[in-house]
Design a binder for these strands. Structure first.
Lengths: 342, 342
DNA sequence: TTGTAAGCGTTATCAA
DNA sequence: TTGATAACGCTTACAA
């Protein structure tokens, strides 16, 4: 059994409360007493029991990080950042992978209600808001959302303007003189994907081009969908001249197919990918990507959550961050041509 | 403030102990009483406070998952699996990213000593064993290691036989008739990398080939190291005919350079990569890889840890798993030639 | 400056 | 089958 406050108090010959004050750096302890206490604490390597402390102070110093899907690269980067911030502020992070299961999400939200965590961050999801709403309405559960929008309730949220991201991508392609832009996207019904489609439409519209549904290739987001997308694209009466792809895996598949078909990127087909990750970094040619400020999202969410925990009431917040276009070889045929001429 | 046992007891008109028995499905509660209690519990959505429960039962049902580096793909898969198993067994997982910092590792191991977790799993690391040894010797801290070997202490451990993995890779290349095999590896001094080098040597030896240091290209493991490796390789008086690369990022870099040089894979240079992940899945041509049973490692470690927590003494365990070679296009020139002839 | 003692919300023991 | 009550290990008034 580990040492307790009581043990230390006995050893030093003072009351438990005095030891408590000493190890918590509180005033009201004589200099000598404090030194002696800390000496003993050090000597016997005493560590306070967090559960007892938590019970007494009504806090756990643990945050729940509820993630819909750990295989999504952008989630990992957000997790990384949240963990970092939380730790700097003296919080631990419980990792909760819902795998897009509503039951698991509910279980994890229960952590909040059972006082096992001081607050929670939810990252993305294809699920409905039901669980969140129930949790949020009950008690004083503290929650911040990333990449997820609740409709009926005002919960602090950090979002990316995906419409803008898609707009930037398509605008860039148009400025390269590449018309006939196909969009290869994931689930048509998902909120995030529909945002990207909206951005795509906006850009076309701003450049006086007509929206043509046959250039919209929707799939489920896997690598093989990229392959299929290319097959469908080249079969069109007027095949596209460029692609805006809404995730990295489909981009990888698409590029593979393009190369296998003996075509060149960007000369024959230009490409912009939504999302930047370790995946896009290994794809050839270097990809023009819509990069999201993932670290910033994680940071804002974590810091806001901790503020919420420590201050009673804070004004509600919905923060919308802008993505950034990073231009590389996959979308710039003119530049490539010049390069190759040299 | 959330409802407590006391509140429920009052509402039902019974003692706290009775409510406790009822919600814990313990015997010794009348059928009617139990039903009534559960009805009220349900009605008011009462959730027991885990800290109080933990304090009373001396358990947290939380595990610490201490990871040296979250940017390593194989770690993510292990994390995923550990989280899954832990959850099935009713444990939460605290994510601890040490970023290979000894101070942070120590902090996280403190969680064990502060009774904030019931046990811990450490995944990989470049650090010395000092922290682990200190923690392990003090108190009855429960720890399992993955991909990390302590020399001075017998701690339950799950390892991969990396010597064997490298051996399989190099043997395969030799069997393709590809001699002059270069090894592109990470830090020469790291334990894991030296194991791979050993496997490389063993294979050469078994095939009666001499070990030639000029074919050993050591770097730090980044993508750019792959580029540099190729430059160094082609500068050799007798350039290698194939590469065994010890991680995915360097493989990506190497392949990029090979392609930019106008060479073909596997016709001009054959490649085997140590490690299989989402990264290798997007690299072209399809990579021959040494695949590690990551899920199995996570599963074994998590299950063993939970056993350790629940049973007092278990025989020490060091489990060494075997990796598997998955053969694809990047290493089989003959097959590719046949394919292309068709 | 120090000590006493009442909580925090459970579980578990022992009596009733 | 139930109920009192003492733990669990800490914090925090309040008193001394």
């Amino acid at each position: 059994m580990a040492l307790t406050l009581k043990d230390i108090a006995k050893m030093v010959g003072v009351a438990e409360s005095t030891v408590s004050r000493a190890i918590n750096n509180k005033s009201g302890v004589g200099e000598d007493t404090r030194k002696e206490i800390l000496r003993i604490v050090e000597k016997y390597n005493y560590k306070p029991n967090q559960m007892a402390r938590g019970l007494a102070k009504q806090e756990t110093r643990i945050l729940a990080l509820i993630v819909s899907d750990l295989s999504i690269q952008s989630h990992l980067q957000i997790i990384n950042k949240v963990e970092e911030i939380a730790n700097n502020e003296g919080y631990q992070v419980i990792l909760c992978n819902t795998r897009n299961s509503s039951a698991r999400e509910k279980d994890y939200l229960n952590l909040l209600e059972r006082n096992q965590v001081d607050g929670g961050i939810i990252v993305g999801s294809k699920l409905t808001d039901e669980n969140i709403i129930n949790t949020s309405l009950r008690g004083d559960n503290i929650l911040v959302l990333i990449n997820r929008l609740t409709e009926e309730l005002l919960i602090p949220t950090v979002l990316i303007d995906k419409v803008e991201g898609a707009y930037l991508a398509v605008k860039h392609l148009l400025e390269q003189g590449l018309q006939r832009i196909a969009i290869v996207m994931g689930d048509y019904n998902s909120y995030e994907e529909s945002e990207k489609l909206a951005g795509y439409k906006n850009a076309l519209n701003d450049y006086g081009l007509e929206y043509d549904e046959s250039y919209v290739i929707a799939a489920s987001g896997k690598k093989s969908d990229g392959h299929n997308a290319f097959m469908r694209a080249v079969d069109l009466p007027q095949p596209p001249r460029s692609f805006f792809v809404t995730n990295e895996l489909m981009t990888a598949g698409l590029i593979e197919s393009i190369k296998m078909g003996g075509y060149l990127i960007p000369e024959d087909f230009a490409i912009v990918c939504y999302g930047e990750s370790i995946l896009t970094s290994v794809i050839e040619p270097s990809l023009t990507v819509v990069a999201e400020p993932l670290d910033k999202m994680g940071k804002i969410a974590a810091e806001y959550l901790i503020k919420l925990i420590n201050e009673d009431s804070l004004s509600a917040m919905i923060k919308v961050l802008k993505p950034e276009l990073k231009i590389n070889d996959s979308s710039t045929p003119q530049i490539i041509n010049k390069k190759r001429e040299d």
